[in-house]
Nucleic acid binder design. Structure first.
Lengths: 153, 153
DNA sequence: ATAATAGTTGACAAAAAAGTCATATTATTG
DNA sequence: CAATAATATGACTTTTTTGTCAACTATTAT
């Protein structure tokens, strides 16, 4: 139960796109440089996001990636699901069953119900957070910091 | 962001202990058989739980494991933390930073605050669920099932 | 005492996740 | 129309996580 590397980095790449004005293209190289990741890795992440329809790519010289929709309409839930490491509610109890075919216990055992409850709970949190709200928060923090540093507040 | 094998199996082993009456010892072999896991694996899981103080072991012939505290006082949060795969709130942004030493962005960036918010949110869910409540639920399900099958309801 | 049973430990093996690389494809620009 | 700069793809490598094994220690029963 922790955020995977792909989820974290995928989100970061997406935020880099969200920070650039209007459907302006950003290259893998730029994103990689800004995030301190390898280009190969960033490319892989962006391909996952493209498959999920969150970003869209343009080939050729001067090509790059853009968000497919406004940052305010993209939720963290979508991002995390796009990275493919989220337990899907209907797979609960199918992954970890020991050497048995199905859940060793009842067909609707206590474990199944907590795990699926937890998954739903987490997704509701993620689905309520948009890329835009993350940036907002970031800018507010930056602003507060700037004010404090300049002795204005 | 998904439940790890260790978390799931650790919980299952613990529930096996919670199901047996009073501080009665259960051997690794029994648990392994009931869960369809290898003894070696169950042993490893139980050692983690023992290190965290959730269970206690007795050696020698007729030895085995017991819960250290009543099932109603052990929360899922404790279990998950014992298995060591939970993001700890003060490690946020120290694991995934690309090739940089620290968070590439602000020292209190948008990502950090969501991830730590999410972690807290998840833990509050887990900390409100006890082993006992999982068993309750299990028994209720079993009872409902039994009633339905016997045509009583 | 000794044999048998059960937990303990650390090293190792296998599987999964993360990351890299080489090669192909596409578009632009001179 | 060639050179260049960008994305696309799949195979491969590395790292991390899971799981197994073998040798050891403790406890009980005979």
């Amino acid at each position: 139960m922790k955020i995977t590397a792909q989820e974290e980095y995928g989100l970061r790449c997406l935020l880099q796109l969200a920070r650039t004005p209007q459907g302006q293209l950003v290259s893998v190289k730029e994103i990689a440089a800004k995030e301190g990741l390898s280009s190969a890795n960033v490319e892989k992440l962006l391909r996952l996001l493209a498959k999920a329809g969150l970003v869209h790519s343009v080939r050729g010289i001067r090509g790059g990636y853009v968000l497919n929709r406004p940052a305010a309409s993209i939720t963290l839930g979508e991002v995390v699901r796009a990275m493919g490491k989220m337990e899907s509610t209907n797979h609960i109890c199918t992954s970890y069953t020991g050497q048995r075919d199905a859940c060793v216990h009842f067909s609707d055992c206590g474990i199944r119900s907590v795990w699926s409850g937890l998954t739903t709970y987490i997704q509701s949190f993620l689905d309520q957070t948009t890329l835009a709200s993350l940036l907002d928060n970031e800018y507010n923090v930056a602003e507060r910091l700037a004010r404090r540093m300049s002795g204005t507040a």
